[in-house]
């Protein structure tokens, strides 16, 4: 639904290695421009904070320019600025926050410092309309694995569970490396798994044993799974046998998705929530998307997943949450807004 009179909101995202600038009018997406430094990190096997921060500085203004050109708007048309204030890499966040403040100062427009995880939820409104209240969100990425109960996204979200060790995306990266696949691991494992057997190895499902469920019913653990895969691969290598990469990738991916979907649906049904939203980079995984849809249907839960390009970090999601803040009349942030690397998910607007 086009919203011609709604405020034009520019969103900036720099919490990790993507410099994202999005433009949203109401709930209409006008531009989603991302410059990524992922290739610069590949040889280090993970994101190097200082490399990411340097790349953000260089990409910031050009990305703003490209977003405006794509949307066909002038910067002076922008009505409000939103920026990820946390959580994320401190130095990386700071580049986006400082740039957003300069935009707010230079344009004389309000600034909204918003939560990265809440933005991953908000982005779905651009594709699938207003979020049902409540919605259960499963956010999975290289830095996060969380189950959130969302009622009014502009006021706060209730964390129901989270990883107690590695994030799901981190496990994908580590297993990819083990299998000789490039960084970032997610898309490469997804591709390799397509031709493998998901039941080739029965890898462990973390925190699903009865005694774990008592304390960690909605929490995740992927560290043990990663070690199990490593041991399995090493045993093969020691025996001088080839490692069936596609089968291991598929079996590993199945174990991750199984736990994510199982716990997400358990959380939804236990709270009587009928809508499950997937978000974050790992939500771009084809098996996770398919499994969530299939199993949710069986228990009467509807699934919403943004297209893969909006699951990974981007500026449109920040603009989407900013637009929601404007629409609901929330108070803008002060110019001394800090970047908070460990901003809790309960704090959606700073």
């Amino acid at each position: 639904m086009p919203t011609p009179d709604a405020p034009l909101v520019l969103g900036i995202e720099t919490s990790c290695d993507e410099t994202g600038v999005g433009l949203v009018r109401g709930t209409t997406l006008l531009a989603d421009t991302v410059a990524s430094s992922v290739e610069e990190h590949a040889r280090f096997g993970g994101v190097v904070p200082e490399v990411a921060s340097r790349a953000h500085l260089e990409a910031m203004v050009p990305t703003i320019e490209r977003a405006c050109a794509t949307a066909g708007v002038r910067l002076t048309d922008v009505d409000a600025i939103a920026v990820t204030s946390g959580p994320g890499l401190a130095g990386a966040l700071l580049v986006g926050v400082a740039s957003a403040k300069a935009l707010a100062l230079g344009l004389g427009k309000p600034l909204y410092g918003v939560n990265h995880l809440a933005a991953h939820v908000a982005v779905d409104q651009l594709e699938h309309g207003p979020l049902p209240e409540p919605t259960l969100a499963l956010l999975v990425s290289g830095g996060h694995s969380s189950l959130l109960k969302v009622t009014d996204l502009t006021l706060g979200v209730d964390p129901m569970g989270a990883t107690i060790d590695d994030a799901a995306g981190e496990a994908f990266d580590k297993v990819a490396r083990l299998l000789g696949l490039p960084f970032p691991g997610g898309p490469h494992i997804d591709r390799a798994a397509a031709s493998g057997s998901s039941v080739y190895v029965d890898f462990p499902r973390g925190l699903t044993a009865r005694r774990d469920l008592e304390r960690h019913r909605f929490d995740f653990s992927f560290s043990g799974l990663k070690t199990a895969v490593a041991r399995w691969v090493e045993a093969r290598e020691r025996a001088g046998e080839p490692v069936p990469v596609a089968d291991v990738a598929a079996s590993f991916q199945e174990a991750v998705c199984d736990v994510l979907v199982r716990k997400a649906l358990d959380a939804a049904t236990s709270e009587g929530i009928e809508d499950l939203l997937l978000g974050g980079g790992v939500a771009a995984n084809s098996r996770l998307r398919a499994m969530a849809v299939e199993r949710a249907e069986a228990v009467g839960v509807r699934v919403r997943v943004p297209r893969p390009g909006l699951c990974t970090d981007n500026g449109a999601m920040v603009a989407a949450l900013g637009a929601e803040m404007v629409a609901r009349g929330r108070t803008p942030s002060a110019l001394d807004l800090p970047a908070d690397s460990s901003q809790p998910v309960t704090s959606v607007l700073v």
């Binding site: 921060s53 500085l57 580049v95 400082a98 740039s99 300069a102």
Partner: peptide, 19 residues
């Protein structure tokens, strides 16, 4: 120190672009 330095530079570049 890099972190503080970048704050000044991204502020200068952004303000200069807007104005």
């Amino acid at each position: 120190p890099f972190t503080g330095l970048r704050v000044g530079l991204v502020t200068a570049r952004t303000l200069a672009h807007v104005l």
